[in-house]
Nucleic acid binder design. Structure first.
Length: 512
RNA sequence: CGGGGUUUAGCGCAGUUUGGUUAGCGCGUCAGACUGGGGGUCUGAAGGUCGUGGGUUCAAAUCCCACAACCCCGACCA
């Protein structure tokens, strides 16, 4: 039992915080609502960036960077957009600090037009696109940026909702509505594939109801995941913006027909919230469980010895293990590398910089087991005199604590990659099984209410999306329409709220 | 922004009722020794504007006043 982590069943919210603290993913900061992402957490973000960035580039996108500050007037140009974001904007109104009569620093030098710190960049990017796009030959524009944004939230939670967060935001402009639509959906596919193949989180693709869509979008698509406490979490969104922003920012081009037309735009993003999703989807009462593809340490080797003689033996044997897993070149290169407190790192994958570490610290083996376990490292190897004798190592799997003795001769990079993939598959399956078991069907509103209160999870039902009715349902159940899944059965039924005939099925759930 | 509560070491708390020496305790942290196949033992150490400002007093963590921050419940938000 982990003594610094509250079990999920006792207090899920506290468990979540404890896991993050124990794994040193993040820390609270002196600024309310803002978090510090520590190296262990940032490594996960880097893995997310690395993989997604490749996927974006593979589909023709390029990266750029736009300013943090946006003229306040820009936000107001799109009516729904300003409505959606005005309440949570941080506003910069002064350009300097000056000492007042009391000797204290106070803001001075008011600036002519207040600037807002970007809550999202549609407006400033729209402004630039208006200058850059003149002709159909300039299209499509396929730009992404990795940056931070700020939304002044009342209630924050590490990774899930913080005032400042890191994300990527793609902004594209197209000649036709059809092309923009396709882009929106192809990005959603990328997000879904990424969530499932890299983070091992099964997600449901679908459209948002009008009540839940992005302010300023025509249609918002999302991938939705189910967390272990039965609440849903939106893991990524892709918006078809129609010509709303094109009209607001006058993004026009001369079309093939010699007429001025407005472009069709999209925007899409995922954020550090994905790290929260990853934690809540997989981790257990012992701490973090990292999906292998984003684990910056894929294996930790824990040496066990009593005497200096035994240490010699063990050390020599571990070198043999490393030689087979990372190669003699890397084994040699690692010797000149600085390491903290005798945790030696060996790059297992030179591209992702995922590593295997050997924990030579002078602490008890039990401490080390917990240490690496709480950090979610997929595999631990125990190597002691007994193992040296047997020419083997004891391998422990983080996911289920399964133990396995592996012979030295078995070890190779492909062997470890296969093992990591097995863990990934098992994690995905486990999460998928959980989701399947926690997706239920309601035929009436009473059933919906009853299922939500007794089980949580997703509830699927016939429903005609409608802003007013959704608001009432949210009032009564705290649940919202998470998605209108693409995967529709197309069988007619009665809307659980109005009783009208419809084929539309939606997923309700309480959400983060 | 409304209602309630809290504020003393990194965390959790005692001390405030009835003002009085150097503000303690547990956990954690750090160092050393012994130890070593799942959180071991011992020794030692560091760490405090007692939320902030003002007042009463010979003397304030303690009494008085004002303010602030944080937490919970609403509201807002994905």
């Amino acid at each position: 039992m982990a003594k610094n982590i509250k079990p999920r069943k006792d207090d899920y919210a506290q468990w979540y915080i404890d896991v993050i603290k124990a794994a040193q993913l993040a820390d609270y900061s002196p600024v309310k609502g803002c978090m510090v992402i520590r190296p262990e957490g940032y490594a996960v973000w880097e893995a997310i960036q690395r993989d997604l960035d490749r996927r974006f580039k593979d589909t023709g996108h390029v990266n750029a960077y736009f300013p943090l500050l946006i003229p306040q007037s820009f936000l107001a140009k799109e009516a729904e957009h300003v409505e959606g974001f005005a309440m949570e904007c941080a506003v910069v109104t002064h350009s300097k600090l000056q000492k007042g009569p009391d000797g204290k620093l106070a803001p001075a030098g008011p600036i002519e037009e207040p600037l807002i710190i970007r809550p999202t960049s549609e407006t400033i990017i729209g402004h630039m696109y208006a200058e850059w796009i003149q002709s159909y030959r300039d299209l499509p524009v396929l730009i992404n940026q990795w940056c931070n944004v700020m939304r002044w939230e009342m209630r924050t939670r590490l990774f899930l909702r913080t005032a400042e967060f890191l994300w990527q935001e793609g902004h594209t402009a197209h000649e036709t509505a059809d092309e923009a639509q396709k882009e929106t959906l192809s990005i959603l596919d990328i997000y879904a594939a990424f969530a499932e193949d890299i983070l091992a989180i099964p997600v449901i693709k679908g459209a948002k109801s009008d009540a839940e869509k992005f302010p300023g979008a025509v249609t918002t698509y999302a991938i939705e995941g189910l967390m272990q406490d039965g609440k849903a979490l939106q893991c990524g969104t892709s918006h078809f913006l129609g010509q709303n922003f094109a009209k607001a920012f006058d993004i026009k081009f001369l079309g093939r027909n010699q007429a001025q037309e407005h472009v069709w735009t999209t925007s899409w993003g995922v954020s550090t919230r994905l790290i929260g999703a990853m934690i809540m989807a997989h981790s257990d009462d012992e701490g973090l469980i990292l999906p292998p593809h984003v684990a910056h340490v894929v294996s930790a080797i824990v040496p066990i010895f009593k005497t200096p003689e035994e240490e010699q033996l063990v050390r020599a044997f571990i070198e043999k293990i490393l030689a087979q897993l990372v190669g003699p070149g890397e084994l040699e290169a690692a010797k000149t590398r600085l390491s903290r407190d005798r945790i030696a790192g060996y790059f297992f994958d030179p591209i992702t910089h995922q590593q295997i570490v050997v924990d030579w610290r002078d602490t008890r083996p039990g401490d080390k087991q917990y240490y690496w376990e709480q950090r979610g490292v997929p595999f631990r190897f125990e190597v002691g005199p007994r193992d040296v004798q047997a020419n083997a190592a004891l391998m422990k799997r983080r996911l289920d604590r399964a133990k396995e003795t592996v012979q030295l001769s078995q070890l190779s990079p492909t062997w470890l990659r296969d093992k990591l993939q097995e863990v990934h598959n098992a994690m995905f399956q486990k999460a998928l099984t959980y989701r399947t078991e926690n997706t239920r069907h309601a035929n009436t509103y009473d059933e919906l209410k009853q299922l939500l209160t007794t089980h949580g999870g997703f509830v699927r039902c016939h429903f005609i999306p409608n802003r007013a009715n959704e608001a009432k349902i949210k009032d009564e159940t705290k649940a919202t329409v998470r998605v209108i899944p693409f995967d529709q059965s197309n069988t007619p039924g009665k809307c659980i709220y109005t009783g009208e005939e419809t084929t539309t099925e939606v997923l309700f759930a309480q959400a983060y």
